[in-house]
């Protein structure tokens, strides 16, 4: 176990290990999302209240889960990078942030589209949507800060500090937004707090969520490998690798 962790910590070890891991994760992601997607679109029964519009849930909820998890992932990577000076963690963080922002956007977009048939309007200052919007700004801030530094290592460390500051603030922001929401809005119909979903509705959702997570892991592995090649391009082993191809 420790050997594997050690191996993951060095760029070269990560590169070789991830090459073995990657196909399996991609396959799992594709399989889960295909089954979950078809099941959710074709076989899950229509909602008794929202009809077929509820099928948006199968992309909205996984995207929202990922949006939040990736931010936590960024902070974990930031701690690993700042405390143990493991560069691979920062490379992973640098490729995870744009994908996290993308997932946040998808969650916002699908939430807004879902809002039209449910609430009758594109945007409602619902607690979840509002927190999502703030999360998007936090992502953009981290990406922009990393890019603003001329020196890459400083940019990495600055983005790491901001990710940690952000992750400490997210629960505070979430709770204050929820509190603000209950204060200012009469209880509206909430999307996810529904009378217990039947299994044929939530099982595909579960598959989709797990599938999205696998997709995220696979994509992160793939792009971290690219990042390793880019940053270590003058190292012996990368040059040997390139020559061998």
């Amino acid at each position: 176990m420790w050997r594997i962790i050690h191996q993951l910590g060095s760029p070269k070890g990560f590169y070789t290990l991830s090459a073995r891991l990657q196909p399996w994760v991609w396959a799992a992601a594709a399989l889960l999302m295909l089954i979950g997607g078809l099941w959710g679109l074709l076989y899950a029964p229509a909602d008794y209240q929202q009809g077929d519009s509820f099928r948006i849930i199968y992309v909205h909820v996984p995207a929202a889960f990922l949006a939040q998890s990736i931010f936590v992932g960024l902070a974990v990577a930031a701690v690993v990078f700042l405390v143990w000076k493991i560069k691979v963690a920062d490379m992973a963080a640098s490729v995870m942030a744009p994908f996290g922002a993308g997932m946040t956007f998808v969650a916002l977009f699908s939430g807004a589209v879902w809002g039209v048939p449910t609430w009758g309007t594109w945007w409602v200052w619902d607690a979840r949507l509002t927190s999502m919007l703030i999360l998007l700004f936090l992502y953009i801030g981290i990406i922009a800060l990393r890019g603003a530094y001329a020196h890459r290592d400083s940019g990495s460390r600055a983005a790491s500090v901001l990710a940690i500051v952000g992750v400490i603030n997210i629960p505070i922001i979430k709770y204050s937004v929820e509190w603000w929401n209950t204060l200012h809005q009469p209880a509206t119909f909430s999307i996810t707090e529904r009378p217990a979903m039947p299994a044929e509705m939530w099982l595909p959702l579960l598959l989709m969520v797990v599938g999205f997570y696998c997709f995220c892991i696979a994509l992160t592995l793939m792009r971290t490998r690219n990042e390793i090649l880019r940053r270590e391009s003058s190292k012996r082993w990368v040059r040997d690798l390139v020559r061998g191809q």
Binding site: A144, A148, L162, I173, S176, W179
Partner: peptide, 30 residues
């Protein structure tokens, strides 16, 4: 925190507001 992160960056002013404003929301709400 935001000011310290952007002090070394040229034209950090806009970036500073982008970093700091989301973190101000809880204070604003209460």
């Amino acid at each position: 925190i935001g000011a310290a992160l952007t002090v070394g960056v040229s034209r950090g002013g806009v970036l500073l507001s982008l970093l700091v404003l989301p973190l101000y929301i809880p204070v604003l709400i209460f």
